[in-house]
Simulated scan of single mutants.
Amino acid sequence: MAARVEHLVTSGTFSLDGGTWEVENNVWIVGDGAEAVVIDAAHDPDAILAALDGRTLRAVVCTHAHDDHIGAAPALAAATGARILLHPDDLPLWKLTHPDHHPDGELADGQTLTIAGTDLTVLHTPGHAPGAVSLHAPDLGTVFTGDTLFAGGPGATGRSFSHFPTIIDSIRDRLLTLPPETVVRTGHGESTTIGAEAPHLEEWIRRGH
């Protein structure tokens, strides 16, 4: 059976720099009827476990280490035996949420994760966070961008560990070079396509200055 993409929305809070906000997060499950990976274990490990429905969880892949994207990762890993994978540049952020639990493995630019016969290529796309990554699955015609690229523009860069020129570079050089029909599955909100977002790059740059 070919890999498929499943979508779960979980709710909770995001806290950084002394503020806390209510948020809804997209959790993405990629796999088949036997095995899967979870992209961003947000808020609710029980809901994610229920969605897995007994399948073997191979990895919990973190697009970045803001607390709303990794809050459920240790509990989900403990329940399933899956490894938590994070880009090492986001370890300082990770430790703000889980100081006593280290990720099990590192993500690196160009690395390939294979699940249910489908390759996910890691693209290092910093800016929203230093170790932010996107995951490109060409066979599925999709890219999982975390909080780097949304429907309507780049992720936020107004808080600690973020940098606007860097996120623009990441989007221009790593994401907008993908085929225009590629579906962009985001960390929050609605999906979009590369083709829908690409014409707005210059407008985002003007807005950001």
Rank of each mutant, 00 (worst) to 15 (best):
A79S: 12
L135G: 04
T121Y: 10
A75T: 09
A129F: 04
I84D: 01
D173R: 01
A82S: 09
D109E: 15
T157Y: 13
V143Y: 00
T166A: 14
A132G: 03
G152V: 12
A132W: 12
L149Y: 00
G105L: 02
G152N: 07
F144Y: 14
D119V: 03
F161C: 05
K95R: 15
P103M: 11
A116F: 00
P179R: 10
L176M: 12
H163A: 11
H102V: 14
F144D: 05
G153N: 02
I171M: 02
A156F: 03
P88N: 14
G146I: 04
G117Q: 06
W94R: 01
A82F: 12
A82D: 03
G110T: 05
P165I: 04
D169Y: 06
H87Q: 07
G105V: 02
A82Y: 08
A79N: 07
P99N: 03
I84H: 04
A132L: 07
D89T: 13
P99I: 08
T121G: 01
P74M: 15
P130S: 07
D90Q: 08
L176E: 01
L120V: 06
D139I: 08
T80M: 11
T97D: 03
V122N: 02
G155F: 01
I84P: 00
G105I: 05
H87R: 11
P179D: 05
P154M: 06
